[in-house]
Design a protein around this nucleic acid. Sequence first.
DNA 1: AATTCGCCCTGTCGGC
DNA 2: TGCCGACAGGGCGAAT
Length: 297
Amino acid sequence: MPELPEVETIVRMLMPRVGGKRIVTAELRLGRLLLGMNPQNFSAKLAGQKILHVRRRGKYILVELENVTLIVHLGMTGQLTFSPIAPEEDGTFIRTVTGLQKARGVHPVDKHTHFILHLEGGERILFRDPRTFGKLFLVDGQEWPKHPRIRILGEEPLTLRIPSFLSKHYPIESARSIKSLLLDQTFLAGVGNIYADEALFRSEIHPAQSVRKIPERMRIQLLKAVQQVLTLGIKNSGTTFSDYRKPDGTKGSNASRLKVYGRGGQPCLKCGATLVKTVVAQRGTVFCPNCQGRKPK
DNA sequence: AATTCGCCCTGTCGGC
DNA sequence: TGCCGACAGGGCGAAT
């Protein structure tokens, strides 16, 4: 599922490729992905607009245009990819300088391709999302920080200053689980299930541990661990488990670096104990019962 | 007021 | 082989 590192990777690859280019037409093929306006108005507002910047806020992709900002959330299975230029595409194969090659990971327009930005020069940006949990919406001008979905977001984990963040934002009295707090986008924006489990493992905190029972020293360790796992994820251009792809259609390489996510029943890489798969905060959760003891030290 | 629950959705997988 | 239920889960609105 696309979390901060995956979205950051997409934004970093998208910007140099499409920045400065103009949208010719916007083709919305599945209207229910669009929030807050009808598809006709949506396409009309996008047509003719030049792409000024592509940014990230939490797990949202912000495409800043001349008069509006297009906001994309990839949900569970969303992909944002460059498409081969139309005449060179024949579905399964793409034409390259060396001839026809199988289009590995690059999907042609198919039944899961719900939104297409046609750019000047024939290039396209394809939004593909099999489970359709993704969302599209538009905000006037540069007003995107005021949109309700964006306004409620908490701090960016990679730029926060840990001591002041902890003193100002940590809900020190709360009895909720630490994992549910990490997943709470109004606390930290961009952490999802994969990186929450990884950060908890790295800081040796049980995912069900109550927020109020974690001493300050451990809270600092946890936030540092969050930053470390996110940074590593970006360095490896994201975690591909099933659907996530970079804009060029290739997979991120971070999955092989994960210590716990997806490894339930396998040995802990620190101590050899069998990793436990359970449910915490309504999410599948993997942790080491030995390394991540419930009692804070 | 804080937290949890149910729902949206479809591809994949295990069991029979 | 094929059917069917379980599962994956981000985020929102309803329920507790």
